[in-house]
Structure formats: structure tokens, C-alpha cells
């Protein structure tokens, strides 16, 4: 066994290929990827669009909108807002769509559950 990164007792005898092929795991994988990949693509594109504008559309970015506030500053602050928004969205998505399935599969394999600090609540003792 090349990998020593895990506690051997918890899941040593599990047939992971079998778990991987279950519909429930495939659903978890699909839900995870169908959120994180498009979201990563969107924010990277939005960030590089911003960098390109700052680099090559200086006149547009320098357009004053309100007082001394220009388009560049507004787009820059929107980068902050979009980062905060994506963060919030991902957390709520994980809580609703990912964590319940992940916990179910983990529970089944390990035969015990953890509280929010990761301590074992029931079942196998350490």
C-alpha cells in the first residue's frame, strides 16, 4: 500500500470501486462537478475580462459615472461583490445538495456519524 495518508481502521476493507459505481455516489459527483466547474469558469472569465478591460480599454474604464467614481472602480468593486456572492452561493448549495448525500455515504461506510467538531458520536470507538 503506497498511501499512508489515512487512518487504516476506518475504511480499510471498503470496496471503493463498488461505492464509486453506486447511483448515489454518481449523483453526488454530478452535483459537485455541475456546480464547481461552471462556477469556476464563470469567475475566471469575469476576472480576465476585467483585467483585459483595465489593460486595453483604459478610456472606457476611466469614464466618470458619479463624482470621481469611474467605471473601473465600479467594476473592481463588483469583483469583490461577485466573489462574496459566489462564496455564499456555494456554501448554501453544499449545505443543501452535497453534504446530506456525502454524510449518508460516509455514514454507511464507517458505521458511525460525527458531530460538527468531527468527534465520533455513535458506533466505532477510536
Amino acid at each position: 500500500m503506497g498511501n499512508d495518508a489515512q487512518t487504516p481502521d476506518a475504511a480499510a476493507s471498503v470496496d471503493f470501486e463498488q461505492v464509486q459505481s453506486t447511483a448515489r455516489f454518481q449523483e453526488l459527483r454530478k452535483r459537485h462537478r455541475s456546480f464547481v466547474f461552471p462556477m469556476a469558469a464563470v469567475f475566471l472569465l469575469w476576472y480576465f475580462a476585467y483585467v483585459l478591460l483595465a489593460d486595453y480599454a483604459v478610456d472606457f474604464m476611466s469614464t466618470k459615472v458619479w463624482g470621481n467614481i469611474n467605471v473601473g472602480l465600479i467594476l473592481g468593486l463588483l469583483q469583490f461583490i461577485s466573489t462574496f456572492a459566489i462564496t455564499g452561493w456555494y456554501v448554501s448549495y453544499s449545505n443543501r445538495k452535497l453534504d446530506p448525500i456525502a454524510a449518508e455515504i460516509r455514514h454507511e461506510i464507517e458505521g458511525h456519524e460525527f458531530d460538527k467538531d468531527g468527534n465520533i458520536v455513535t458506533g466505532v470507538t477510536k
Binding site: 487512518t7 475504511a11 470501486e17 464509486q20 460516509r106
Partner: peptide
């Protein structure tokens, strides 16, 4: 090893067997 790949994928998404806090 495809078994290792399966193990990594299942562990990464579910947290099975991940080390917990030390008491």
C-alpha cells in the same frame, strides 16, 4: 490503479476515513 482512483474520488467527496481531531 483504478481501485486507488476510486478510493481517492470517494474519499475526496465524502470524507470517508479522513483523520479527525485529536482528543
Amino acid at each position: 490503479d483504478s481501485a486507488k482512483q476510486a478510493e481517492m474520488e470517494v474519499r475526496s467527496l465524502t470524507g470517508v476515513g479522513a483523520e479527525k481531531a485529536v482528543d
